[in-house]
Design a protein around this nucleic acid. Structure first.
Length: 106
DNA sequence: GGGGTGACCCAGT
DNA sequence: TACTGGGCCACCC
């Protein structure tokens, strides 16, 4: 697998996030797993780190952890935006069964 | 070159 | 449902 620079990896992550349809979500782990296929890197923590630093430019609220929880300090904002798009929440968390999305599967 | 850190994940309690 | 501990891996000082 062709090694990619951090900059390229960041771009890949942001591209995937932008491709998430309204009202749908992807987990950090899912993104990492998906990118492992094309970038040779798989690290949920790295994805989280990237989102924390560069997430402001993309629909970051469509990215949640595997439990359907929003990032610390942004729960209110994220919940509001996702609901506005038709997202399904359950007990203050995203209903992963209903909203989880995968680039190829849809 | 070594060690701390995190918008994670999973299994167990 | 909530909390805990261990594993993980790339980033950054």
């Amino acid at each position: 697998m062709r090694p990619v620079t951090r900059e390229e990896y960041v771009d890949e992550v942001l591209t995937v996030v932008e491709s998430i349809p309204p009202g749908r979500v992807m987990s950090y782990g899912a993104i990492a797993e998906y990118l492992a296929d094309r970038s040779g890197r798989s690290s949920p923590r790295l994805v989280g780190n990237i989102m924390a630093r560069y997430g402001g430019a993309v629909p970051w609220y469509r990215v949640v952890n595997a439990q359907g929880r929003f990032p610390p300090g942004h729960e209110v904002e994220a919940r509001r935006r996702l609901l506005a798009e038709g997202g399904v929440l359950k007990g203050g968390r995203v209903d992963m069964a209903a909203c989880a999305w995968w680039p190829e599967g849809d």
